[in-house]
Amino acid sequence: MIDIEKEAARIAEQGESAPRFARDPVNLPMINNWLEAIGDQHPGYTEVAPPAMVQVWTMAGLHGQRALDDPLGAMMKILDEAGYTSVVATNSDQTYHRYLKVGEHLSVTTSLEDVTGPKQTGLGEGWFVTTRSTWWVGDEAVAEMRFRVLKFKPAARSPEPASETPKAQAIRPSINRDTEYFWEGCRVGELRIQRCGGCGLLRHPPGPMCPECGATKPKYLVSDGRGVVYSYVVHHHPQVPGKQTPFVIALIELDEGVRMLGELDGEPSIGLPVEVVFTKVDDELTMPSWRPRADR
């Protein structure tokens, strides 16, 4: 039996990996390829690179191998051995301190920040592994990234595959410590409702302190994803980014008792039984929405 938490602590204690240098300096041909692939037509990237490219410079290439002291590689190996053989990236937050100039040669260091689990997710039981990388030019830190993956045992029943509808300009939620469990749940096909760790109160939208008992240990339960339409709007004007008018937004009363807003794909009426659907917008965002229940 592998003690995952102990192994994680051991890797975390090793601190930052040795600097790993980029294969090539920041260069215009790669910048142009990237701009073309992303569809970015900004004319300003002739002497500096797009900040979001930062990870590109230190990628290992087609046949690259992880460095021996890479903490993510080490942690993945331990979780593989413990039976958590599948992986899905859940989020990646990057911070850029300045633009990178053509000709600059980057290196990257990585440390293991956090390993939490085991968590029951829609994909199966798993561990969230968070690493922190810093990119350097000489001894100047130029960018940072917090990267989180879910390493899991595939569940017998996998959630319905999320339909891949790119909605590039759709309005994105802002997410903080109090709400990230919800969006993390959506990414793994779970509709999560905040449940107070003190008194068990269910609450949506969530918050950090229970208004009933004052506890500050919010947990969550995974909803069955079923409910009825409590009220709804058919939106016609004005245009809404990422939506085609007219469309329906419904206020759903979940079987568990809380209410939640979402787009409804179907003919609306108050009392209509509905079920949740998850739509993947991109790797970071999956939106919950609703459809009439087939068994109604």
């Binding site: 309005i171 949506h204 809404v240 939506k243 807003l261």
Partner: peptide, 13 residues
């Protein structure tokens, strides 16, 4: 944060 339960769902006016 409060608006993140409505605007992304399309309820934004």
């Amino acid at each position: 944060i409060d608006n993140s339960w409505s605007y992304p769902m399309g309820l934004g006016t």
